[in-house]
């Protein structure tokens, strides 16, 4: 993947002292990291080590037990999902069939879930079907979604096209921070390449991207910086991914090696918990 070096500007995401006691699944402990606007931060780890929980907390789908999260300077504590989106978060969920789409609804309807109540899609309390349709046709063309019509139910699309619908929705909201979980899982090569280009383009346009993936090749190709998660803790932080090999990252994923917590939290500015 050809890409220019990142030109990080402001801060897109600050996470400080994040803990989460999961009723089921993986709990999180003492997570500290930043994502700058204009960089892609990769999150590596063997699946089930807390990536899902972290992503869903950042998206507002779960509430953390303690810690502070700031998105583009906004404290997200106490915000609901819509509030998180309003603060500038976009989220491509890892399991698109579970919550990424309403499979039996049209592409057009799937593309507006976060904005159906706002102009130009709604005016004076009424939806404008023509605006919803235009919006969909625009994105279908922009993201090269292969479908005969915007009224086709999402279920009828291939994995790659379905994922394009989700990515189109999330990126077209122009998020300050995009959380992209397993974006290319079950997606054909063409669509995969397309996603990569879009993620880099979003980065270059000034978005922060947190790329969660089980695919180390993908992470090393795209990430400007890399974090590794194990058992609900961050165990490594690489601020320079050039020259990093899959084997080396793998050692951290398996807990054979780990970074000093001081190194992982180095240089992070203080953020007071709300």
């Amino acid at each position: 993947m050809d890409r220019a070096p990142a030109r990080p500007t402001g801060s897109a995401l600050q996470v400080r002292g994040l803990t989460y006691e999961a009723p089921t699944g993986q709990s999180l402990q003492g997570i500290d990291f930043d994502v700058a606007a204009g960089e892609i931060v990769g999150l590596a780890g063997i699946e089930g080590n807390g990536q899902t929980e972290l992503a869903e907390i950042l998206a507002g789908l779960r509430r953390p037990t303690s810690g502070a999260i700031r998105v583009d300077g906004t404290d997200t504590a106490g915000l609901d999902v819509a509030g998180h989106r309003g603060a500038g978060i976009g989220y491509v969920p890892e399991d698109r069939l579970r919550n990424g789409a309403a499979l039996d609804e049209s592409i057009a309807d799937n593309l507006v879930v976060d904005r159906h109540h706002r102009a130009p899609l709604a005016r004076r309390g009424l939806l404008r079907p023509s605006a919803v349709r235009d919006h969909a046709e625009h994105l279908i063309e922009d993201y090269a979604i292969r479908t005969p019509d915007a009224s086709v139910p999402v279920r009828a699309l291939s994995g790659g096209n379905m994922q394009k619908v989700i990515v189109a929705r999330e990126l077209s909201a122009q998020p300050r921070l995009l959380i992209a979980s397993q974006v290319t899982r079950g997606v054909d090569i063409g669509a995969m390449r397309f996603m990569y280009e879009r993620l880099v383009a979003a980065r270059d346009a000034g978005a922060g991207v947190l790329l969660v993936s089980a695919d180390l090749t993908e992470l090393l190709a795209l990430a400007d910086r890399l974090l590794v998660i194990k058992d609900g803790r961050l165990v490594a932080r690489f601020d320079d991914t050039s020259g990093l090999t899959e084997k080396r990252v793998g050692l951290y994923m398996l807990s054979v090696e780990r970074h000093d917590p001081a190194h992982i939290a180095a240089g992070l500015e203080e953020v007071s918990a709300a």
């Binding site: 789908l61 999902v81 819509a82 989220y91 609804e105 309807d109 879930v113 159906h116 309390g125 939806l127």
Partner: peptide, 24 residues
């Protein structure tokens, strides 16, 4: 068919987890 609430009702019925994820 023509109001935001109706849209939310349809999405909730179709896939509540998607609706929640979308901020509904």
């Amino acid at each position: 068919t023509r109001t935001p609430l109706g849209y939310r009702i349809r999405m909730t019925g179709s896939n509540p987890e998607f609706a929640e994820y979308g901020g509904i």
